[in-house]
């Protein structure tokens, strides 16, 4: 009996909840697979999808967002072996799952921890609450490809932002497989959009894009490129997360700066009286 011929997977982009090829029709060979080589147009399409998703995702209840993030953890747990087969160490997959769980719990705590009543000196009700900044462009760290990616996506979307993520160019397969997890986790299309290919090709477009509110340069290893991107980001005063140090420990407690940098504080006043 002849051996069964395997069905191979086509690795594509993840934009607006769909898996399109690059509009440029290009791909590159990496990790023994053909992976889409995103163009500047793909980056712009991804921003359009991310913007379209802001209203629904930011407008969802914090409880709902928390459940969706927890659902991502459930789905990832179920696909653990698939990531191990791609070469992701088991403990990294476990840490990535746990990270989704950690952030899932933040969704309905942020407003209490980072907002609250302000005791102004006058007869006014005054309250501050955090809100998502909007569309965030993210450069995922090169490695660890899965845990690093989860560690930059989750803190951005937990508060209601939507993201366009440039995946690790050297190890994109875990990223695309994570997109398949997201697509089956009740996460609305467009909340996470994933680009594979060259950072130098897509990220300058995202950094200069006037409909992007913030940029996370975590995965930009080249200091010169990072500075150039930060200069582009200044055009519409994007909120900026600067590159992580090369020795950053992705397994450690992530802290809150990734979340808070991508939040806006809104303060509402109203007089008291009869």
């Amino acid at each position: 009996m002849s051996e069964r011929v395997a069905v191979r997977k086509t690795y594509k982009l993840y934009i607006g909840g769909k898996f399109p090829r690059s509009e440029s029709g290009r791909s590159y060979i990496v990790q023994d697979a053909n992976v889409a080589l995103s163009s500047r147009k793909d980056a712009r399409d991804a921003v359009v999808a991310a913007r379209a998703a802001v209203k629904g995702w930011a407008g969802a209840t914090a409880y709902n967002r928390g459940q969706v993030l927890y659902r991502v953890a459930e789905m990832l747990e179920g696909r653990r072996e698939q990531f191990v087969a791609l070469g992701v160490p088991g403990e990294e997959v476990d840490a990535a799952i746990d990270r989704w769980v950690w952030y899932a719990g933040w969704s309905d705590k942020l407003a209490q921890v980072y907002g609250g009543a302000n005791p102004v000196a006058g007869p006014y009700f005054n309250i501050s609450a955090p809100e998502p900044t909007g569309v965030v462009a993210v450069v995922a760290p090169e490695r660890p490809a899965l845990l690093g990616l989860v560690s930059v996506i989750a803190p951005a979307i937990v508060s209601g932002n939507t993201v366009v993520v440039a995946a690790s160019p050297a190890e994109p397969l875990a990223a695309i497989t994570l997109a398949e997890v997201l697509a089956t986790s009740d996460l609305p299309g467009g909340v996470v959009n994933l680009l594979t290919g060259k950072i130098s090709e897509t990220v300058p477009t995202l950094a200069a894009h006037m409909d992007v509110n913030a940029i996370d340069l975590t995965g930009v290893a080249d200091a010169g490129l990072a500075a150039e991107l930060e200069i582009k980001a200044a055009e519409n005063l994007k909120r900026v997360l600067r590159p992580a140090p090369a020795d950053h420990d992705w397994f450690a407690d992530p802290g809150v700066t990734r979340m808070t940098t991508l939040l806006e504080t809104k303060t509402v006043w109203h007089p008291k009286g009869v």
Binding site: N118, V120, Y124, N126, E264, K266, T267, W269, H270, P271
Partner: peptide, 16 residues
């Protein structure tokens, strides 16, 4: 960042 309802241009050191 600041929304004044039925008032305007109010400031206070405790208010972001």
């Amino acid at each position: 960042g600041v929304v004044w309802a039925n008032t305007f241009n109010k400031f206070d050191p405790t208010s972001p």
